[in-house]
Amino acid sequence: MSTPLKRDEAFLQFLLRMGDNTLILGHRVSEWCGHAPVLEEDIALANTALDLIGQTQFWLGLAGEVQGEGKSADDIAFLRDVWDFRNLLLVEVPNGDFGHTLMRQFLFDAWHSIQLGRLLKSSDARVAAIAEKTAKEVAYHLERSADTVVGLGDGSEESRRRMQEALDYLWPYVGEMFQSDDVDAAMVAAGIAPDPASLRDEYDALISRVLAGATLTIPDSRFGHKGGRTGKMHTEHLGHLLTQMQWLQRAYPGANW
């Protein structure tokens, strides 16, 4: 390991990781609006997306503050390119069918809820306050996505098959949530955030319980894609997402919306 990161630099990276996760997943979930299998699900998915967009405003707003260059949450969301994004690969993969979307949501919500639970005790009061506000929203996301995963897994033959396929496809993206690097080491040292690896046992217990209820089989492989939260190598999908998300800000720089 090279020289330890400066605390503020590591803090900024941590905040981008939190905010980019909610930004990109919120964007993905919002793609469903008007296209969900049934009206009640359409409305529920929009609520989840709305929560995630709101959470993004908190995390990226604080990131701008810590960075100290006068950037707003919007500047950070709309004016960075792929290599500056710090979200998990899991949240940038395309929606696929409703089963993929809900499985991805569940796998993320489970991590998110555990992470926020730890952040409630963050040494940084601003982080603890955001965790306090968002943990309640995420607890509901988890409840809803877990129930839907169980309902579809233990549903019809077709729904079970599709949910197993979704789990098999998404499983290699789970490991990245628990990889620790020098950013995390600095956050642990400062008491701001937990070591990601320390969340794994609780996570495994949670998802094993739900996926067993869903009659689904967790793949044996522990192989994990990585590169999202470090920014070293995103999927090809993120660039396409950004071309839509950032288009107006890029095409008409400096305009007020």
Binding site: V38, E40, I43, A44, E143, D147
Partner: peptide, 18 residues
């Protein structure tokens, strides 16, 4: 509409308490 009571409560939360 909901498949069962539990989902009906969740849908109620999402639809009627926005």
């Amino acid at each position: 509409h909901a498949p069962d009571a539990e989902m009906a409560i969740k849908n109620g939360r999402d639809v009627y308490t926005r």
